[in-house]
C-alpha cells in the first residue's frame, strides 16, 4: 500500500515535470544560443547600488507583460479572453500622469486611483461577459477600441510628461539592487498564487472553465468567478500601465502597451494552457513571458532585424496550437508510423 502511494506521488511529480519540460527546454535553448553568441550574456555585475546585465534587463523589460500574463492566465482559464489590456494600460497611465501633473494629490491617492481605473475597466469587461452574455472577444474588443480614445482624451492628444520622483520609482527605482518592477511582479505573482492556490478560488476557476454547467450544479456561481477574473486582469493591466508610464516619465496613450495583449496571450499559450479554458498555471505562463522576452533580447543582441520578432512569434503560436490539436497529433503519429514501416 505504502509502496503504491509513493509510486503515485512519483508519477504525479513526473506529470507536473512534463508540463514544465517543453517551456524550460525552449528557454534553456535560447539562453544557450545567446551564451554561444556572446559568452558574457548571462553576466551580472553590481554597480552604484544596483545590478546590471542581460538577465536583469530581461526581467525588467518583461515586467509589464508578466503582469498582463498573470491576469490573462486566469481569464483564459475561465474560458474567456481579454483583448483590452493594452488599452487599459494606456488609461491607467493617462489617469496617473494627469493626476500628477494637474493636481497635488498624494502618491498614495494617485496609485489608488490608477489601480481603481483598471479594476473598473475589468468590472465593465466582466459585466459584459458574464451578465450580458456577450462573447469575451467582442466584449473586450469594445474597450480595446474605445480605451485608447479615452486615454487620448484624458491626455488631450498629447504625451503628458511628469516629474515625480516617488511615482518614477515604480519604473526606474531599485530595491536591494533589483528594479522595483521585478519586485512588483513578484509581489503580484505571490499574492495571486496565494489567493488562487491556497484558497479554493483556483479550483473554482478551473471548474468553471472546464464545465460551466456542472459547476452551476455544484453551487459555484460561475458569473461571479468570471467577473472576478476580469477584475484581476484589469488590476494587473493598470499596474503594468503605471510601471510603463513611470518608466518613461510620461503617458503616451498611442503607444503604451501596443500589441502587449498579444504577447500576454502568447505567453499563456506557450505555457501550455488551452484557450478553451480549464487547467491553468501562472508559473508556466510566466515562463512563457520569459521565453518571449529572451527571444526579443536575443534578436536585438544578435543584430537581426527586430521585426523578425513578429514572424517568429506567429510561427511559435501556430506550432504550439497545432501541437495541442488532436487532429495534428494523429496526423503526425500516422506519418511517423508510415515512415517507420517503409
Amino acid at each position: 500500500m505504502i509502496n503504491t502511494e509513493i509510486s503515485h506521488s512519483f508519477k504525479e511529480r513526473l506529470l507536473i515535470t512534463s508540463r514544465y519540460t517543453w517551456p524550460i527546454a525552449a528557454l534553456v535553448l535560447l539562453l544557450v544560443f545567446n551564451v554561444l553568441m556572446d559568452a558574457s550574456f548571462l553576466n551580472i555585475h553590481f554597480d552604484h547600488g544596483r545590478f546590471y546585465g542581460n538577465p536583469i534587463d530581461i526581467l525588467h523589460r518583461s515586467a509589464p507583460v508578466a503582469l498582463l500574463a498573470i491576469g490573462m492566465t486566469v481569464v483564459i482559464a475561465t474560458g474567456g479572453i481579454d483583448l483590452s489590456v493594452g488599452a487599459v494600460m494606456a488609461i491607467a497611465g493617462a489617469v496617473c500622469a494627469n493626476l500628477l501633473v494637474a493636481t497635488d494629490a498624494s502618491l498614495f491617492t494617485v496609485l489608488a486611483i490608477g489601480i481603481a481605473s483598471g479594476v473598473l475597466c475589468g468590472l465593465i469587461n466582466g459585466g459584459l461577459v458574464s451578465y450580458m452574455g456577450i462573447q469575451p472577444i467582442i466584449a473586450t474588443l469594445l474597450l480595446m477600441v474605445t480605451g485608447r480614445g479615452i486615454a487620448q482624451l484624458l491626455n488631450d492628444g498629447q504625451i503628458v510628461t511628469f516629474q515625480h520622483a516617488g511615482f518614477s520609482f515604480l519604473g526606474s527605482g531599485t530595491l536591494l539592487g533589483i528594479p522595483v518592477s521585478i519586485w512588483l511582479v513578484l509581489a503580484v505573482f505571490s499574492i495571486s498564487q496565494l489567493l488562487l492556490r491556497r484558497t479554493a478560488l483556483g479550483l473554482f476557476v478551473e471548474a468553471v472553465g472546464c464545465n460551466a454547467s456542472a459547476s452551476r450544479y455544484l453551487g459555484i456561481n460561475d458569473r461571479t468567478v468570471k467577473l472576478m477574473a476580469y477584475m484581476l486582469t484589469g488590476f494587473c493591466a493598470a499596474l503594468a500601465g503605471m510601471i510603463s508610464a513611470a518608466d518613461i516619465q510620461g503617458s503616451d496613450a498611442n503607444n503604451v502597451g501596443l500589441w502587449l495583449e498579444l504577447d500576454a496571450i502568447l505567453a499563456v499559450v506557450l505555457g501550455g494552457a488551452a484557450l478553451s479554458g480549464g487547467r491553468f498555471s501562472i508559473p508556466l505562463s510566466l515562463l512563457g513571458v520569459l521565453i518571449i522576452q529572451t527571444l526579443n533580447t536575443t534578436i536585438m543582441v544578435s543584430g537581426m532585424p527586430s521585426k523578425l520578432n513578429l514572424l517568429i512569434k506567429a510561427i511559435a503560436v501556430v506550432l504550439v496550437l497545432l501541437l495541442q490539436s488532436d487532429t495534428f497529433r494523429k496526423q503526425i503519429s500516422g506519418l511517423a508510423g508510415r515512415w517507420r514501416h517503409s
Binding site: 479550483l203 478551473e206 472546464c210 464545465n211 456542472a214 450544479y217 453551487g219 480549464g278 487547467r279
Partner: peptide, 22 residues
C-alpha cells in the same frame, strides 16, 4: 454535461461539493 468536470482529477471532482459548502 451536468455532473463530471471532465479534465479535473477524481480527487478534485470528489472534493468540489464539500469545498463549495466550506
Amino acid at each position: 454535461t451536468d455532473g463530471i468536470i471532465g479534465p479535473l482529477s477524481i480527487r478534485e471532482n470528489i472534493a468540489l461539493a464539500l469545498q463549495v459548502q466550506a
